[in-house]
């Protein structure tokens, strides 16, 4: 890994030259909501942000995507495959919690049965991560899951804001190619700068979640889920804003002679999520749905994929839940203790 620097005033110029070759994607603000989307220049992005409402998982696994179109010609059926991307992409400003979430989603979409749509988007997208501001948002708890908001892990380039300039950690070859597009804009750090220009350490309390799975597994029949589900309204916010939630439904639109097969995010918090054609509902009440969500994050997912927990501490669900269900409180309840350690 190589560390360089770029002045804030030059960042836009660099990104503009990146945009000439790639589809540039970054956080923009509309109606006070930050979302990732395509931009035509660096200036359109708002990098002075905390995080996007919808996680950048949507860039790899969009809320709705056509899988293929079908046309019936006589007795023949023609299929037309969807093209996930027109151009290679560069995503700027992704936070480390969301970078980690992609490594978790990789297990779902790339292990065993490979999902070609996800694969293409993942392979053709470079990630320029942006280290989190200090202090972080008070609700953030990524360090609980061993995530370092300043780590270059999983991205091609990491930008660290240190006032008037960004430190630029170039991690991969793809990252080097991108930096090469900004010839003359990047400089190496002097020895004095190496010492002086250091991001302040992240001060974020971390919970000790080592025993979370074991403790949770013992609570399957516990009355806790009855109580926890009382304030849940049954909307889909927590799952749609979650960077690791990945459930979807597949359906057709059109007619029997022509149409599109698409997939669309689904939410395990919806009453019809586990409703079967027979009329039987495997999770008939909010109690089962709520329990399922936490079991999936903290027990089923890690068991199935051999990874860590399927939560990255972004706190989106906690901040946006209209019923005030707070995942940090749920974790503390499961652990059966109030204390916060330094993890």
């Amino acid at each position: 890994m190589q560390r360089k620097k770029i002045s804030k005033s030059d960042l836009g110029r660099w990104l503009d030259s990146v945009a000439e070759k790639y589809e540039l994607v970054g956080p923009t603000k509309d109606e006070e909501v930050h979302l990732f989307g395509p931009v035509s220049s660096g200036a359109e992005m708002d990098l002075e942000y905390s995080n996007s409402l919808i996680p950048p998982k949507s860039l790899f696994f969009p809320q709705v995507e056509g899988l293929f179109a079908f046309h019936k010609r006589g007795k023949e059926i023609e299929l037309e495959e969807a093209k996930p991307l027109e151009k290679d992409r560069v995503v700027v400003g992704i936070r480390n919690c969301d970078v980690r979430s992609l490594s978790l989603l990789d297990r779902v979409f790339l292990d065993d049965l490979e999902d070609s749509y996800y694969r293409e988007r993942r392979d053709r997208t470079a990630l320029i991560a942006l280290a989190c501001p200090t202090p972080p948002r008070s609700s953030c708890f990524c360090t609980t899951f061993g995530i370092d908001p300043l780590s270059p892990e999983g991205s091609d380039i990491l930008l660290i804001d240190v006032g008037d300039l960004y430190l630029v950690d170039v991690v991969t070859e793809r990252g080097q190619e991108l930096v090469a597009l900004g010839e003359g804009l990047f400089t190496t750090l002097t020895e004095a700068e190496e010492k002086e220009l250091q991001p302040p350490p992240v001060d974020m309390p971390a919970l000790d979640v080592g025993e979370l799975k074991e403790r949770l597994d013992a609570l399957w029949e516990d009355g806790y889920w009855d109580k926890l589900s009382l304030p849940c309204l049954g909307c889909g916010i927590c799952t749609y804003v979650c960077p690791t939630c990945h459930c979807f439904d597949i359906s057709d639109v059109g007619s029997t002679s022509a149409g599109i097969r698409y997939r669309c995010w689904d939410s395990c918090m919806y009453g019809d999520f586990a409703l079967m054609a027979s009329g039987e509902n495997a999770r008939p009440s909010r109690r089962e749905r709520m329990r399922n969500r936490y079991f999936h994050k903290f027990s089923t997912f890690p068991s199935r994929y051999g990874t860590g927990y399927a939560c990255v501490g972004c706190a989106r669900c906690l901040v946006h839940c209209p019923g005030g269900v707070e995942i940090t409180e749920v974790i503390k309840d499961i652990l059966g203790k109030e204390g916060v350690s330094d993890g």
């Binding site: 919808i54 309204l233 049954g234 909307c235 889909g236 916010i237 919806y270 019809d272 209209p322």
Partner: peptide, 26 residues
């Protein structure tokens, strides 16, 4: 166009009590 159809507006509404909502009908 910005709506993500999370249904939160419906679920939070005191007056949305239909046993089967038209939007859920299969």
């Amino acid at each position: 166009g910005r709506c993500i159809r999370c249904n939160a507006c419906r679920e939070a509404c005191y007056a949305c009590y239909c046993e089967e909502c038209i939007f859920d009908r299969k």
